[in-house]
């Protein structure tokens, strides 16, 4: 029984040490939506997120790369999104972030598809072996009908109809 207790203690210590080692990296990231974002965005709107990458450690962070990730979280449609079409600003690099210094990054984004999304910013530096992530920022994109039947039907039926009427009018006048 004591052996099992020691085993659990050893595992707990190993895990807690690992966690504290991962958390003790010099970088910290915050992520918040910009105050100018629309309160209830819909497809086609633009959002902006602000993140601050801060060096809270005692040594300089070198070769810092930070990037933004987007995940759809609708039940049954959970998937990472390809940001190719959502944002042209997908990553930033910083050669050195000195202790106590912070870097503010803006992440603009154009909303391409409706649904519930979660955005997160991650960063790595050359010397650390762990990735640092920001808290999540969640948002919902309202649907916007992009191909509307009430626009297409009058055109699709009207234009051939007008040409047909022209043909009929021409025939009538000739006869």
């Amino acid at each position: 029984m004591h052996r099992i207790g020691f085993l659990f203690l050893a595992v707990w210590l190993a895990l807690s040490c690992g966690a504290s080692w991962a958390a003790s990296g010099p970088l910290e990231i915050t992520l918040v939506p910009d105050a100018s974002n629309p309160p209830s965005p819909r497809m086609g709107d633009r959002l902006k997120f602000l993140s601050v990458i801060r060096n809270t450690g005692g040594r300089a962070a070198e070769g810092v790369v930070a990037w933004i990730s987007l995940v759809q979280v609708d039940p049954g449609r959970e998937q990472p999104m390809d940001l190719e079409d959502w944002s042209a600003h997908k990553a930033v690099t910083e050669a050195v972030v000195s202790p106590g210094r912070e870097v503010t990054v803006e992440w603009p984004m154009r909303l391409i598809q409706s649904g519930n999304y979660r955005v997160v910013v991650s960063a790595v530096e050359r010397q650390a072996s762990n990735v640092v992530t920001s808290p999540f920022a969640d948002f919902h994109v309202r649907r916007k009908p992009t191909v509307e039947s009430n626009r297409i039907l009058p055109i699709a039926l009207g234009i051939p109809g007008v040409i047909l009427a022209l043909m009929g009018w021409r025939r009538y006048h000739r006869s």
Binding site: M43, I112, Q113, S114, T146, V147, A156, I159
Partner: peptide, 18 residues
């Protein structure tokens, strides 16, 4: 052109990219 457009009406939940 009309037939092509009418075929597109069937899918109204296209994303902006679509």
């Amino acid at each position: 052109m009309s037939v092509l457009s009418l075929l597109l009406v069937s899918n109204t939940e296209l994303s902006l990219l679509d």
